[in-house]
Amino acid sequence: MRRVLTLLGLLVAALLLRQLLFPASYDVRRSQILLGTVVEIDLHGADASRLEAAVSEAFAEIARIEALMSPINPSSDVARLNMTTAPLAVHPETASVIAFGAELAQKSGGAFDLGLGRIKALWALESETPHHATAEELAPLLRDLGPGDVSLTDIGMAQRAPAVAVDLGGIAKGYAVDRAVAVLSRAGEVWGSVNAGGDIGFVGSRPDRLWRIGIQHPRQAGEVLATLSLEGGAVVTSGDYERFVEIEGERYHHLFDPSTGEPARRCQTVTVVADGAMLADVLATALFVLGPEKGFPLVESYHASALLVTVDGAVHTSPTLSGVTWP
């Protein structure tokens, strides 16, 4: 009897030691519709209740940012900004996003623009009645467009040029992913990912191997164009295939060229790998408009890398892109 007890004691002690040396791992995976897309969060760690709390907090954080920056919500900073041409006091986070967007508008020579709200509203691609905008309709909307159309005053108030409407579409999603990643990282020894409709931010790195991220093929649904092996950071794709309408056989997508007010025509899809999702988001939008020759130097200047498919179907990769495998 004593021997049995001793053995049992040994086994319990061994199990306790095992728990100390190799903690159990849990996986919390949840998705929610936010930012006009599906946001999926996947978080691994040792403490299940802490993971659950962190994931809930991250979704709340994304909802909070959506409330600040959505053009639809009438009390958001963006909606209020579009109701006045005077400088407006906005939330410090909205101000910092606008500051970053304005910097990129400058650096990209206007390929990225925070003031595309009226252009998007004119095309109304996401409504029930999309409209093929004509050059006459577009001309007055293009007047004020360009670097500086949306800016911050010296004292940090937000301001827009009269002929533009603010739209943070190409930047707010990335910012929200970055914020969610920051919230999740506070949960201690965890790893995982935030995926907002293909805008992906990583929480730490996988303990076993690199992240394997498939890039959606722009013309073959469900097929992967290439696979990226990444340690962490963020990866964002802008493609013409996700949200588009066909008007008289022509494909009109949601990525507009600020110089013409028409959907940009150089690329089919652009994927940017960067340290943060907001940076990757903005760079992907700018690169989509610029194309590889002008766009890659911009991407490199932010220590990011990119893979893109031009409209003729040719694949280009920026010189610093590593870890790509082709199927």
Partner: peptide, 19 residues
């Protein structure tokens, strides 16, 4: 506001797809 999702061990060779 409707989300259909299939849960289970994924056989995919990718962790995520960027689109």
């Amino acid at each position: 506001h409707l989300l259909l999702r299939i849960e289970g061990e994924s056989a995919s060779s990718h962790d995520l797809i960027t689109r």
